[in-house]
Nucleic acid binder design. Sequence first.
DNA 1: ATTCTGACTTGGG
DNA 2: CCCCAAGCCAGAA
Length: 112
Amino acid sequence: MTTPTRASRWQRFYAVVRQIPSGKVATYGQVAALSGFPRHARQVGYALFALRSAGDDEDPVPWHRVVNARGEISARSEPGPEPLQRVMLEAEGVTFDTFGRIAMKRHQWRAE
DNA sequence: ATTCTGACTTGGG
DNA sequence: CCCCAAGCCAGAA
């Protein structure tokens, strides 16, 4: 709605994640910082978790472009989107090394 | 109102 | 590289 001052921080995170271009990835901490909350990396993860069942076909959030600081896909409590996330990233041109890590120096998103 | 949980990060040893 | 402690917030029961 039109109440940004009362809007959840989560909406802020989603807005930033939506700005991540295809072929690039950002870390939770990065998203938090760009949203204006340097120490809220955790909340970003939780926000995305809540997004799992969101029916946002009109306003999709590229959650798959958010990875942890190690450059790996974070493990969830339950199996599911992990392999999918990797597939989606690879489909966008993101490459993984033998350790299952992303070449962050090459794919990490640089905000402008 | 309280308690528990959950896609994390960073710094220090 | 690994392990530990602290910081942070929202939603469900």
